[in-house]
Amino acid sequence: MKLKDELKTLKVFTDPISDNLIKNRVYDTLVWNIKKATYYKRFFYSFSIILLILNATIPIINQLNNYSIWVTIISSIGFVITSILTLINFKDVWYRYRVTSEIIKSECMKLNCKIGEYENDDREKMFLNKFEHILSDERNLWINSRFNNQDKENLEEVRDGE
């Protein structure tokens, strides 16, 4: 599904939510996550395809006489692209954004259909609590993937106001 088409379908998940504050927060979060997932997916595939092509040309150029400098240049470019892919973790970030948006969509459908834990009258409050918990879990995954233990402790102290 194209990004534009997917963004058009988000109202299906959020329109039935009666509280405008919750509705807008969920909608904006879904838009953010889907756009980011698409962005990182495109970068991952673009860099991976370029890397594949570069690596495939190395043996070919290596067989040609007097072109050894090109092998070095292409290998260096391939190394830089591999390093970028490893440093930024495009695939992992893309996956994390996508999973978060799909979990939120699932919870929205449960809320809208009034099933499971959303059968009672205060279902939107329960949904908001679950929604914020999902975002908190995603944030913790991000922190764990980006920072070492000392950095995490410093972030927790800042968050806790110490």
Score class of each variant (00 low, 15 high):
96 R>N: 09
50 I>H: 03
27 Y>P: 01
113 C>V: 10
133 H>M: 13
111 L>W: 04
22 I>T: 06
33 N>V: 01
39 Y>G: 02
75 S>T: 14
34 I>K: 06
108 C>F: 08
98 R>S: 13
58 I>N: 05
36 K>N: 13
156 E>Q: 12
126 M>L: 15
123 R>I: 06
144 N>K: 10
87 L>K: 09
40 Y>W: 11
160 D>A: 08
156 E>F: 05
75 S>M: 06
3 L>C: 04
53 I>M: 05
19 D>Q: 07
79 F>L: 15
64 L>C: 06
103 I>H: 03
86 T>N: 11
38 T>P: 01
54 L>W: 02
64 L>R: 04
91 K>I: 07
121 D>A: 15
8 K>F: 06
61 I>S: 02
23 K>H: 05
118 Y>V: 07
156 E>K: 12
79 F>K: 10
89 N>S: 11
65 N>D: 12
106 S>Y: 11
158 V>Q: 02
87 L>A: 12
42 R>N: 12
90 F>V: 05
141 L>N: 07
33 N>M: 08
98 R>Y: 14
31 V>W: 06
114 K>H: 10
50 I>P: 02
134 I>D: 01
39 Y>V: 04
91 K>E: 12
96 R>V: 02
74 I>Y: 07
62 N>Y: 15
123 R>M: 07
48 S>Y: 09
32 W>N: 14
68 S>W: 06
49 I>C: 01
67 Y>H: 13
4 K>V: 12
133 H>E: 12
45 Y>E: 09
39 Y>W: 14
72 T>P: 00
70 W>V: 00
82 T>Q: 12
130 K>L: 11
8 K>G: 00
160 D>S: 13
19 D>C: 08
8 K>H: 04
130 K>T: 08
72 T>Y: 06
103 I>R: 02
114 K>V: 01
52 L>M: 08
132 E>Q: 13
115 I>W: 09
62 N>I: 09
75 S>H: 05
30 L>M: 05
68 S>F: 08
106 S>F: 13
96 R>E: 06
5 D>F: 04
3 L>D: 03
139 R>H: 14
121 D>W: 00
160 D>G: 02
73 I>G: 00
40 Y>R: 01
38 T>C: 11
73 I>A: 06
161 G>F: 05
43 F>V: 03
114 K>F: 09
6 E>M: 10
40 Y>V: 00
83 S>G: 15
63 Q>E: 10
72 T>D: 07
90 F>T: 02
60 I>F: 14
65 N>I: 07
115 I>G: 08
94 W>S: 07
124 E>H: 09
158 V>L: 05
46 S>W: 09
59 P>R: 11
78 G>A: 15
116 G>S: 08
108 C>K: 05
11 K>D: 01
140 N>V: 12
58 I>M: 13
38 T>S: 13
99 V>I: 15
21 L>Q: 07
148 N>M: 07
150 Q>F: 08
125 K>L: 15
89 N>P: 02
118 Y>H: 03
39 Y>E: 10
117 E>I: 15
157 E>K: 15
129 N>C: 03
61 I>W: 07
20 N>C: 08
9 T>F: 03
18 S>W: 07
38 T>V: 04
62 N>G: 11
55 N>M: 12
134 I>C: 03
90 F>P: 01
106 S>A: 09
94 W>H: 12
152 K>N: 03
50 I>V: 15
161 G>N: 05
128 L>I: 09
72 T>Q: 09
44 F>H: 14
23 K>A: 10
41 K>D: 10
79 F>G: 14
92 D>K: 15
41 K>N: 13
121 D>T: 14
132 E>W: 05
